Amino acid sequence: MRRTVALLCFVAAVLGGCAGTPEERSAGTRLLWRDAAFAAPSQAPDAAAVFTVDDAMRAYLDQSSVHRAHDPRRSLVEQLYRRQALALDYAGSTRTAAEAFAARAGNCLSLVAMTAAFAREAGLPVQFRSLAVDESWSRSGDLLATSGHVNVALGWPAHDLHVRRSNETSLVVDFLPADQIDGVRWRPIAEATVVAMFMNNRAAEALAEGRLDDAYWFARESLQQDAHFAAGYNTLAVVYRRRGLADAAETVWRRLLEQEPANRSALANLAQLMQHEGREREAQALNTRLRSLEEAPPFHWFDAGLQALREGELQRARDLFQREVARDASYHEFHYWLARTELLLGRSKQARRQLELALETSPSPQIQSLYAAKIDWLKAERRLQ
């Protein structure tokens, strides 16, 4: 059973919505950079700082009762979010864990980072989770944006093996009211993806203040952290367009559409760019594609694909899984089930590619090792080309 501590806030993947090192993940995005068109940032992006615990945080934790509590997870949350304790303000800019603690304020992503940093310092396992909430649209000038939501789940310490009074396996800390997230589908995401969200938020904040150079370097770092993070592509393209680099913006949006052909933000923004440049026929084709996309809740095509697979309708299952991948190519299970179906259809080359994508988008080393082992086994069985 899982319990949720609900606190109000929303994490925005503004202007949008892995396995290996950041350098390996970003290898395919390097052709997108236009470093020469931007001055050095006023503050260089620092991925390591997002979850860093400073001396003030350690002192606060040492003075708390977390280490002595029967349930250290719940004690930590109470210490952080009771008004009598920190009196945190759930608003403001995107801050690192240490910055949010020092300011006693931060937006939702800041507080997720701070919660995770404190939890790890206390020896608690942490899992980041993306929730399949309904897509929320907004507009920034003539550019369209979508938003997403993440929260964090705290586990029991690995050394805590005694019999507990509670059968809770994890304590979820969320900044939306409980009635808005009860029953909502979720999936685990990697720390690199959370850092990508952080950098993307910083980029969006710089854009809003007209600091294009800073926005570029933060958007660039977002994709350095997670080359599958769609919102990072959208933000980078927006930066290019506002700098007057329409060709670079188009390249980035088309690159995202290669990865996610049904990405609504990319289609809408690219259509507007084409129209602005007088390329009416291309704009019309993109708008037609956008209007043709059926509205369906998250996981709809995936669930339908599983049902088709159970019924032995392989081609239909493949088409349904492809539709889910087309609108969200960052979830490993979509790629895995598409790979299984491709293999059943005898399409070994396509199956291998989807398994590789499942490996690339896996949120943890444990899941990565499972996919790597599966690929090795299928190669040994000569079932993959």
Results as ranks from 00 to 15, higher is better:
E209Q: 15
Q272A: 13
V252W: 01
L236V: 08
D247L: 12
L236A: 09
Q272N: 09
A262G: 14
A219C: 06
N201I: 11
D247R: 12
A237N: 02
A208W: 11
S265H: 06
N263C: 11
L257D: 10
L207N: 12
L256N: 02
A271R: 05
Q224S: 13
T251C: 10
N263Q: 13
A262H: 15
N269E: 03
N263I: 01
L273W: 05
R279W: 12
P261R: 10
A203H: 07
L267C: 00
F229C: 07
V238D: 14
Y216I: 03
L270R: 08
A237R: 00
A237D: 05
N201W: 02
S222I: 03
E277N: 13
E221G: 01
D214A: 05
Q275L: 08
R211E: 15
V252D: 00
S265M: 13
D213T: 08
L257V: 07
L223P: 05
L270I: 08
D213W: 13
A266E: 01
E205G: 11
T235P: 05
H228K: 11
A208D: 15
R279K: 12
A204E: 06
V238C: 13
G244V: 09
M274P: 02
D226L: 03
A204F: 01
E260P: 04
Q225R: 02
L236T: 08
